[in-house]
Computed example of a mutant assay.
Amino acid sequence: MKATEIERKRFDKSLDEIIDLFNNIETDEPVIQFSDKVLVNIERAKRKYGDEMVNDKINTVVHEMLSWLDLDDVDESENK
């Protein structure tokens, strides 16, 4: 690919910005650390019943389980 000196400089600057963005990406930590066995079964269930149904079922179970806990006094502004 041929480029003028101006195009080359623009490309270099853009590439530097992309590299900088990539280097500053925060790691996405899962909210829940499922065991390998559970992850395998989730994937199997999704293949059989579909993503939406399995996601809905898991959310329903977790929502119910969390309703058993007293969370009213938790300050959501605190650091994790």
Score class of each variant (00 low, 15 high):
Val54Ser: 05
Ile58Asn: 04
Pro30Arg: 05
Asp28Ala: 04
Leu71Asp: 00
Met53Val: 11
Asp20Glu: 05
Val74Asp: 02
Ile25Ala: 10
Glu29Ala: 03
Asn41Lys: 13
Val61Trp: 14
Lys2Ile: 09
Ile19Thr: 04
Val31Phe: 03
Phe34Met: 10
Gln33Lys: 14
Ile18Met: 09
Arg10Gln: 15
Phe34Ala: 10
Lys46Tyr: 14
Lys57Gly: 03
Lys2Leu: 12
Lys48Trp: 08
Asp36Pro: 06
Met1Ile: 12
Phe22Ile: 08
Ser35Cys: 01
Phe11His: 08
Arg47Glu: 09
Leu15Ile: 09
Val38Thr: 13
Ile32Tyr: 15
Val62Tyr: 11
Asn59Thr: 06
Glu26Lys: 00
Pro30His: 03
Ala45Leu: 05
Lys37Pro: 00
Gly50Val: 07
Glu52Ile: 03
Val61Thr: 15
Lys13Ile: 06
Trp68Asp: 07
Asn79Ser: 11
Trp68Tyr: 15
Val61Gly: 02
Ser14Ile: 02
Thr4Arg: 02
Ile42Met: 12
Lys48Gln: 15
Lys80Glu: 10
Asp16Lys: 15
Leu71Gln: 14
Ile18Ala: 10
Ala3Leu: 09
Arg10Leu: 12
Asn55Cys: 10
Glu78Gln: 10
Val31Ile: 10
Asn24Leu: 03
Glu29Leu: 14
Gln33Ala: 14
Val74Ser: 03
Glu17Ser: 12
Arg47Gly: 04
Glu7Asn: 12
Ile6Val: 04
Asn41Val: 02
Asp51Cys: 05
Leu21Lys: 15
Glu5Thr: 13
Ser35Val: 00
Ile32Ala: 02
Asp73Ala: 15
Glu43Pro: 02
Leu66Trp: 02
Val38Glu: 08
Asp75Gly: 07
Asp36Arg: 15
Val38Met: 09
Leu66Asp: 00
Val62Lys: 07
Lys37Phe: 03
Val38Leu: 11
Val54Thr: 08
Asn55Gly: 06
Val38Gln: 11
Asp56Ile: 05
Ile58Arg: 02
Val61Glu: 03
Lys9Leu: 11
Asp28His: 01
Ala45Trp: 05
Lys13Leu: 05
Lys57Trp: 07
Asn24Val: 15
Ile18Gln: 04
Asp56Gly: 06
Asp28Lys: 07
Ile19Asn: 02
Ile25Cys: 08
Ile6Leu: 07
Met1Tyr: 01
Glu52Gly: 02
Tyr49His: 09
Leu39Asp: 04
Lys46His: 05
Glu78Gly: 01
Gln33Asn: 09
Thr4Asn: 06
Glu76Gly: 06
Ser14Asp: 04
Phe34Gln: 01
Lys9Gln: 11
Asp70Pro: 04
Asn23Ser: 08
Leu66Ala: 10
Asp72Phe: 03
Val38Arg: 05
His63Leu: 01
Asn23His: 10
Lys48Leu: 08
Asn59Phe: 03
Leu39Pro: 00
Glu64Ala: 02
Glu76Lys: 13
Thr27Trp: 03
Asp16Ile: 05
Ser67Leu: 13
Ile25Val: 14
Gly50Arg: 15
Glu29His: 02
Pro30Gln: 11
